[in-house]
Design a protein around this nucleic acid. Structure first.
Lengths: 200, 200
DNA sequence: AATTTGGCGGACTATCTATTTCACGGAATT
DNA sequence: AATTCCGTGAAATAGATAGTCCGCCAAATT
């Protein structure tokens, strides 16, 4: 006859080691990138045996995905659900665009390192590609929400979204501008892009 | 007493195998990227022993650098030396900017795959970073030459160069625009950026 | 023809990585 | 206390990779 186990303490320990694995993994990913990080690297850093890792995360994909959850919480990316609230109360398109630039710029700043590293390996690791697609969708939703009052054509949204994308932000970040001036420049480019997109 | 060897045929053979190695390497780099390509991959593809590879190219850096020469010739990147000739005879800034966009767009089109793959691994392989820096310098020189008649401040040049960079081009390439419309959009953004850069 | 030179590739070593096996010991249950 | 369960980590396996060594043979020279 089978016994009924509850294993409260065991479940706690399980969660603790899971957490240790995730912390070690994120540390290493930040230091050396995702793709070059090996299972034995992680086991060593976490002070665990490799077998333990495999029990918790059978494949690399599972591990990266679990990290994704943590990272998502830490950098709070824009989401379609949160978009409406962000622009609440802002009536003019100019105000809304300013808010858009502010929000996305702040997001890219706090996520810069990880977005860069994820971008490097997205072709190799599907979970990273999935993550970045979600981020891009969130940015797209913000853009759409910001411009909603103007009822812009689809192409305008796409162009502005491209301008607000991480690769573009990253390249413009290489210019030695203050945060303030950088946002100002982005804002003007967007306003111009809206007009340009309508004309082509 | 030492003999004087000339080894004409030997030198020819040497060049031939060198060429075979470079061809195999470039094939594999195009197929799977630079960093993941191993020496034994290359040896197998070239039909040579690994020792032969090491004799020709002691380090991975040497090999990548040698490929760089080939690739450079094939994609004909913009260079500071060639910049003046390209804009010869074009007097108005508008004409020159149109030419700028045309040239750089054509260049990115023919080099898209390799610029993408090189960008992915530039943090890992110094030779790739060096190559991309040279490309970026060439683009910068074109921008400078195009805008020369307007005697723009340094910051304007930097902003326009950022706008003409490969990451930005690549992101805008994801929009489903015809070549013609894509160039038109870029041109308008540049014209706007020039004004915006002056104002901040 | 005899001799020297040097490129070539098979085979070897050492290291690293992914993945599995298994015995141990602490926790859960009766 | 006795028994069942199960997470853990040391160790083993298998495969891949970087890099080297050495004998062979064709080419170069006398």
């Amino acid at each position: 006859m089978p016994r009924e186990y509850k294993m409260r303490k065991r479940a706690d320990d399980w969660q603790k080691t899971r957490e240790r694995i995730l912390q070690a993994t994120m540390q290493l990913h930040d230091e050396q990138g995702v793709a070059p990080t090996t299972f034995s690297d992680i086991a060593k850093r976490a002070g665990l045996g490799q077998a333990t890792l495999y029990r918790h995360f059978p494949t690399l994909g599972d591990l990266v995905q679990a990290c994704g959850g943590h990272v998502w919480q830490e950098m709070q990316p824009p989401t379609a659900e949160g978009a409406a609230a962000v622009f609440e109360g802002l009536t003019s398109v100019d105000e809304r665009l300013e808010k858009l630039v502010e929000e996305i710029d702040a997001f890219y700043r706090r996520g810069a390192l990880r977005l860069h590293l994820a971008g490097r390996d997205r072709d190799l690791i599907p979970a990273l590609d999935y993550f970045l697609r979600a981020v891009e969708a969130g940015v797209g939703a913000y853009v759409e929400q910001a411009l909603a009052p103007a009822k812009p054509p689809k192409r305008t949204l796409e162009v502005v979204t491209a301008l607000m994308s991480f690769p573009v932000w990253q390249r413009f970040g290489q210019l030695e501008l203050t945060e303030r001036k950088s946002r100002e420049l982005t804002l003007r480019l967007i306003q111009c892009a809206i007009r340009a997109a309508a004309g082509i």
